[in-house]
């Protein structure tokens, strides 16, 4: 469940927390796009360091590292498959080349970049602000509400899953036992109570909302309205600048592999 911990928002005030969610989301999207544009190690390495100042300013280092740790298993699998399959298709039976290793590391790094940027985003953006941002982007209110509710219930669900696991372990359930199929089957006693309670909870929520006259007014107004500040504009321009530079590099600059640069430096 530690992956979820990395997405859990806690209300504190920092320059990063106070950024407009729309701009922050735009920034995340730019990082996302740039990460997908390149498959070379060097630019991905640069991208890897971009979110770190944000993490430090927002003081969410511990949670952020936890989410990276949670994703490390998946990262390893990505590396493993990239490496093995490319090796078998392209280079077998020679010894694996440096460029193959570099490529696999780059693909893994791409995944890590995606995880780390999303983690910073969710760690520093309250679901309420996010819903507000959607609303002000003229998304219908029903969708905004469904979205914020879903986001808000992720940590609740994660806690509940932990309790259910504890309860079933106390009745002798061993999750880690048996072959692959048996292991999947082991999760049935966890999933059923989890789903049942999620459904029960959503019905209760619906009743509570209706008893408070949800949807009674056609046109909703908000107490808070999002407005862009100086730092928001600064981040927006930085994002556009990054995107432009990335496109120019991608289009016109041939990126040498890291191994070439290293050997060049040694000369």
């Amino acid at each position: 469940m530690s992956v979820f911990d990395g997405l859990k928002f806690r209300k504190v005030s920092s320059p990063v927390h106070n950024l407009d969610p729309r701009v922050k989301f735009f920034f995340v999207c730019v990082l996302f796009v740039v990460a997908v544009m390149f498959f070379q190690l060097l630019p991905l390495l640069v991208l890897f360091f971009v979110p770190i100042p944000f993490v430090l300013v927002a003081r969410v280092k511990r949670e952020w590292i936890r989410s990276l740790k949670g994703a490390s298993m998946l990262a390893f699998i990505i590396f493993f498959f990239n490496f093995i399959f490319n090796y078998i298709y392209n280079e077998y039976p020679n010894i694996p080349s440096a460029s193959l290793i570099e490529y696999s590391v780059a693909m893994t790094l791409r995944f890590v970049v995606l995880v780390e940027t999303f983690s910073v985003f969710f760690l520093t953006t309250s679901p309420d602000l996010l819903g507000l941002a959607l609303e002000q982007s003229h998304v219908p209110y029903e969708f905004c509400f469904a979205f914020t509710t879903a986001v808000r219930f992720v940590p609740v669900l994660a806690d509940e899953a932990q309790t259910i696991m504890d309860a079933q372990k106390s009745r002798g359930l061993e999750l880690e036992r048996g072959n692959f199929l048996k292991r999947i089957k082991n999760y049935i006693p966890i999933l059923i109570p989890l789903i049942v309670s999620a459904i029960r909870r959503s019905l209760e929520l619906a009743e509570a909302m209706e008893s408070r006259a949800w949807g009674a007014t056609e046109k909703r107004t908000n107490l808070y309205v999002l407005r862009l500040g100086k730092t928001d504009y600064a981040l927006a321009f930085t994002s556009i600048f990054m995107l432009v530079v990335a496109i120019l590099v991608w289009r016109f600059v041939p990126i040498p592999p890291l191994s070439v640069i290293l050997s060049f430096l040694q000369l």
């Binding site: 509940e160 309790t163 259910i164 309860a167 109570p193 049942v196 309670s197 029960r200």
Partner: peptide, 8 residues
């Protein structure tokens, strides 16, 4: 505490 956490 909550039986719904284990009945399946």
């Amino acid at each position: 505490q909550n039986p719904d956490h284990q009945l399946f």
